[in-house]
Write a protein that binds this DNA or RNA. Structure first.
Lengths: 359, 359
DNA sequence: GTGAAAGCGCTAACAA
DNA sequence: TTGTTAGCGCTTTCAC
């Protein structure tokens, strides 16, 4: 409470005094405004240096109404965030981009609906200039919350609704899935199963759709729902094996599930890729490169997607209004918002087949 | 910039007006101070409700000099943070504890020394009330930085120096390692190797010390340094196998390295635990429970350690001065700081042997 | 180009 | 118990 060093932190006033200028001029120099004559500016800079002056963010935020901080909101049902390397990588990308723009990352982990109110309050409290939300499940109220709080938002992963000013970043799940199956087909595989993710997430649904695209009219029993865990992948694999002794290919909707599947295959004495070829999704290197055999998979540039989310949000903030951050503008179609003359729109990134040994 | 909903956010003034009281009274009610008569308080609360008032944090922070925000600073050399489930779990614990005390978690990821200056500036800028730092390596300048910035700090993992007011939270690495080796000895193993972590981290050194405690005078070639990755674990395992054909036990300084070791053992056709028994460290369930065979390991309660770090920091902040947050008080010995009459001291948690199938 | 002055929204003495 | 009054440290018109 009575921390001396905190108390003695120099103010702009002190800098101005030392440089022999007004506070206004000192402020201009500190903020890099034009129109301060060089010698004066130099004196101010020296004073800043000597005093070790650092602007007080609270004071600045009070007047500028900008915090230079972005919230990353994560619903963490079932402990999944972080357990899954996917998010970790995305956060890295976000962090890098935010840092490059002198913004801070405020992490908001929620353990369940009980925390949502708190998050809403926080978002509404003007602590942050915007929010990045990972919408894991269909029933997620978080995006709605942010909108109500009037905070510009970008969502990670395609949400299950679609309106003109909801911005999101996702990869081409459907196209990637198609590519995975085509690879198996090219390998001559004819009995191909799919280990799907939880179907209350759009990414799972989209990948399933891609699977079906490549295999129209496929036997529904060839599709088994997993839960994005190795365990779930293993169980699903067992089921496929039981139902289809002639199975010769599997497309798993995530590397993590694929790793479980490989394990089950090994337990059953099934050779990969000789007997059954396996393709995953994500290309999380720490997983895909370490399975036995190494996993052929569909790569999405997760870190880059994180950067894109941050960039998009920053632009939206710059542009002024966000969704719910004012009267809904409405009008333009699916996933793009008009703002300040600049069209901000959702981003869907490409995927890429990475061939290793499992298929 | 001209966001309507942001602009129209009601102020305390508005609440006061609507409730027919002064700003001061409104403030008291909002902050839960005693001594406001019930009916008045009720009117204020109603006004808050009707207007959807949320206090402006910047304004509040400006006067209270409190941000109710804590920085979690992570050096991320070699992309290790997050890649390692260890940190993820710790962050969860921190987040929970902080949330429980209405504090926010600001995540500061650093990619190298270049970022340190930025972090220093941030810490010095009064954005946060304290910092939690993960001191991964001996040469880490982060803690010194925080100290210079005058920000109360708690370190994750025992730092390699020790002074009276450096607070940290760690597990009993040495004791745990000893327990691991004793377990192997109890199993009748006589030729036991150690896959150590990078020896520029105290946790690795401490675990190695524990190994030596249990096996005094052990052949130095039985100790191979790894890097906390599966790959490193595998390489170290290969080396041990090459050097000691009669090896019958291994203690790896982390589960992740142990998983790599198990993999190498399988490749070489060595049976676990029949031929070689393996014990890991950490008990990261997603790893230990999923190796083949499941890993016997030394459990540390990682999430709880995160909570403890947060709790300790909050108490230190409460108490007033922190390390470097004023003249160093000096005096009391090793790892405890006297503050506000309350002795704050570093915490070393117990470990526990978890027996699965690998040993 | 520079300075003076008016707040941003809030809390905390101090009076009443 | 309640209201009045100073600021917290900064940015930003608006004069000069």
């Amino acid at each position: 409470m009575s921390d001396p060093s905190f108390a003695h932190r120099p103010t702009l006033e002190a800098v101005a005094a030392r440089a022999g200028v007004s506070r206004a001029t000192a402020s201009r120099v500190v903020n890099g405004s034009e129109g301060v004559r060089a010698p004066l500016a130099e004196r101010v800079r020296r004073a800043v240096e000597e005093l070790g002056y650092v602007p007080n963010q609270a004071a600045r935020a009070l007047v500028t109404r900008r915090n230079d901080a972005i919230a990353v909101v994560v619903a963490e049902p079932e402990t999944r965030f972080f357990a899954d390397p996917f998010f970790a990588q995305q956060v890295r990308g976000i962090s890098k981009e935010l840092t490059a723009h002198d913004n801070q990352l405020v992490l908001l982990l929620t353990e369940g609906a009980a925390d949502h109110e708190r998050v809403g309050r926080y978002l509404g409290g003007g602590h942050v200039d915007g929010a990045l939300i990972f919408s894991l499940h269909d029933d997620d109220t978080l995006p709605a919350l942010a909108r109500r709080a009037g905070v510009p938002t970008v969502i990670g992963g395609r949400p299950d609704w679609s309106d003109s000013d909801t911005l999101y970043v996702d990869c081409d799940n459907r196209g990637g899935a198609r590519e995975a199956v085509h690879h198996l087909l090219d390998l001559g595989r004819r009995r191909i199963g799919h280990i799907a993710g939880p179907l209350d997430q759009t990414s799972s649904v989209d990948r399933l759709d891609g699977f079906r695209d490549a295999l129209p009219g496929v036997d529904p029993r060839l599709i088994v729902e997993g839960d994005f865990t190795p365990d779930g992948g293993a169980r699903a694999m067992a089921r496929l094996l039981d139902d289809f002794p002639d199975l010769d290919g599997v497309f798993a909707a995530s590397d993590v599930m694929a790793s479980g599947a490989l394990r089950m295959l090994r337990n059953r004495g099934v050779r990969v890729p000789e007997d059954v070829a396996v393709v995953g999704f994500d290309d999380i290197v720490s997983v895909a490169d370490w399975t036995d055999p190494p996993l052929t998979t569909i790569r999405q540039d997760i870190e880059e997607m994180g950067r894109m989310m941050a960039r998009l949000l920053l632009r939206r903030i710059e542009a002024g209004a966000g969704p719910g951050a004012g009267p809904v503008s409405g009008g333009s179609a699916g996933g793009s918002a008009q703002a300040g003359g600049l069209a901000l729109s959702s981003i869907v990134t490409r995927t890429q087949l990475v061939v290793r040994a499992s298929a």
